[in-house]
């Protein structure tokens, strides 16, 4: 785990993987996502001590401890808030926030909107499997309206949440969709997301073969997007609104300046501030 001894030598993807065995089920898409993340870190020549992986709660949110980076496994739904605070306080770090669809789009929905809008320079990965996995099979915001479960016999009847459209409307600077079944392509897109300044959002279709075995079929459904990456939000909006949910690629890349609140240079000593109280 120690990287001090190898100083500036390049670090392999494997060196970003910790010794801990994931709790995930066999066949879970998140294994590939973990590989893609570590590959992307290696591609970017990052060092584990300079990367923080931040998450909330859920199967996919266990991911920080499976890396050799600094990890933060917080409370349900608030990973983006924790990641935002960390990045703003420590702009020198690379911050990757990761989680699932329940964590990000339901309980954490408000933070998702405001993280897109705020555009702090961090990358947000959602491993979307359209189901609450850790609590064993309840519908999430991206679950199809007719999907049956104990909690929603006959289906929810609710239209699904469209995270990419919401991200675009809220101001995310980089919007992509990938498929866990393509770890190399996913790694390329994650690297691009980290490299792109501002808030980068990567939605990863990551099948839950235990609770949603039919998602094994995503392999056949996922396909490269038929259009090139655009920086025109109007074009992106039109394309995303007619999206089939399986377009893979970087769908929008804007030019918004990342948000970093004024970090004072410390020109004054704290004691100088008391002058304003003096009578």
């Amino acid at each position: 785990m120690s990287t001090a001894s190898v100083a500036a030598a390049p670090i392999t993807a494997a060196a970003f993987k910790s010794a801990y065995k994931p709790i995930w089920c066999p066949g879970c898409g998140d294994y590939s996502v973990l590989s893609s993340i570590t590959k992307a870190f290696a591609m970017l020549d990052l060092r584990p001590e300079n990367v923080a992986v931040v998450s909330g709660i859920g199967c996919s949110s266990r991911i920080p401890a499976y890396t050799t980076c600094y990890g933060f496994h917080g409370v349900h739904g608030r990973a983006l808030a924790a990641g935002t605070g960390l990045k703003v306080a420590r702009p020198d770090l690379t911050v990757l926030v990761a989680g699932g669809d329940g964590d990000g789009y339901s309980i954490g929905g408000n933070h998702f909107l405001h993280a897109c809008r705020r555009n702090v320079d961090l990358t947000y990965i959602v491993m979307d499997n359209h189901v609450y996995g850790m609590t064993k099979g309840q519908p999430s915001p991206t679950t199809e309206p007719d999907w049956e479960s104990k909690l929603s016999p006959g289906g929810t009847g609710l239209r699904t949440f469209h995270p990419l459209v919401v991200a675009l409307a809220s101001g995310a600077n980089f919007i992509a969709r990938t498929f866990a079944g393509d770890p190399n392509g996913t790694a390329q897109i994650i690297a691009d997301a980290i490299r792109t300044p501002g808030f980068s959002f990567v939605e990863i279709l990551s099948p839950c073969v235990t609770l949603r075995p039919e998602q094994r079929g995503w392999k056949e459904q996922a396909h490269p997007a038929s259009v090139a990456t655009t920086s025109d939000p109007a074009k992106a909006a039109r394309y995303l609104m007619t999206d089939d949910g399986f377009n893979i690629g970087v769908l929008y890349k804007g030019n918004r300046k990342p948000y970093q609140p004024p970090m004072g240079k410390g020109t004054k000593r704290v004691a100088d501030l008391e002058a304003e109280f003096s009578i």
Binding site: M1, S2, T3, A4, R47, P48, E49, N50, A52, P64, A65, T68, C69, Y70, G71, F72, H73, G74, L86, R90, D92, L93
Partner: peptide
């Protein structure tokens, strides 16, 4: 964070 060798998950 930033300290080599001290990575852990909070």
């Amino acid at each position: 964070p930033g300290t080599p060798g001290g990575a852990y998950t909070a």
